[in-house]
Nucleic acid binder design. Structure first.
Length: 264
DNA sequence: TCCCATGTTGCTAA
DNA sequence: GTTAGCAACATGGG
């Protein structure tokens, strides 16, 4: 479940910890990642994020794009022995300091690819701001629910199931509404609520509802601030109604039928 | 034991 | 072109 706030947390922590470090060696444990190798001696120049994608750029021009999908994690430590479900290890050093970056991923959906310069995935990043006019314009041609629309990375990149539910609740929008039916005013509410929620979640180092951990193995804190996600049956803090749960396109949606209605 | 659900995305087929 | 459904995989719960 790493979504934008979780990936941004990793980006910031990696910048803090290993920018300027050089690759000592790398080891692939999972045959699915066969062929991925990091050139020894290359220096980590920059780490960027676009949506849920993380890109590590080295001074020799090489760049690697990582997507954690469902259960992927990055774990930075000194230990040599790979933790359970390790798929890749990069040993990095600066001076006498040596650290190891593990890609851990029980379900093995995460992807790592070498990319050339300027290859940016589609979609406008949802952080730090969203243009409401762009949302409205992109939505008018879409016959999908607003929930599905927010999850579609080709329009707005970075929002997953947890934050889509939270954003729609904050913006008081019924997740069942069609994206094309939202007014400009409603899109403005989405464009205001989304970056605020994402920023708070980043400050909390993400949402640890199940197995999310940050770069150093610590839980995030945003799970304590969720208003609807996984709160089925609880009382809505805004209207006193009951949080409900429905299925949309095969995925759970949590929302408050009391205050997420079609009324503008 | 079996069946179902779980955060994501990309491919296939309607 | 758009959209629904499923596969990729492992784990935990009923």
């Amino acid at each position: 479940m790493p979504e934008l706030p979780e990936v941004e947390t990793l980006r910031r922590q990696l910048c803090q910890a290993v920018l300027g470090f050089r690759v000592v060696q790398s080891t692939v444990f999972d045959p699915k990642l066969e062929g991925i190798s990091f050139r020894p001696g290359s220096r980590l120049r920059n780490i960027e994020r676009h949506g849920k994608w993380l890109t590590m750029q080295f001074e020799d021009g090489s760049a690697y794009r990582i997507h954690l999908r469902m259960t992927g994690r990055l774990f930075l430590c000194r230990q040599i022995s790979p933790p359970a479900h390790s798929r890749l290890m990069i040993e990095l050093a600066r001076g006498r300091q040596t650290v190891r970056l593990f890609l851990i991923d029980p379900r093995r959906f995460a992807t790592v690819q070498m990319i050339g310069p300027g290859q940016i995935p589609p979609g406008t990043d949802a952080f730090p701001e969203i243009c409401p006019e762009n949302l409205h314009e992109a939505a008018v041609r879409r016959n999908v629910s607003v929930k599905s629309f927010l999850l579609d990375q080709k329009t707005i990149a970075g929002i997953g199931n947890i934050y889509a539910c939270e954003i729609l609740h904050a913006a008081k929008i019924d997740p069942l509404r069609k994206a094309r039916q939202l007014s400009r005013r409603e899109w403005r509410r989405v464009a205001e609520c989304a970056p605020a929620i994402l920023e708070t979640a980043i400050d909390c180092r993400g949402t640890s509802v199940s197995d999310w951990r940050d770069l150093h193995g610590e839980k995030g804190e945003f799970q304590h601030r969720l208003k609807v996600y996984r709160r089925e049956g609880a009382v809505c803090g805004r209207c006193g109604g009951r949080i409900g749960r429905i299925r949309q396109e095969g995925r759970s949606t949590f929302y408050c039928p009391g205050c997420q209605k079609s009324i503008k």
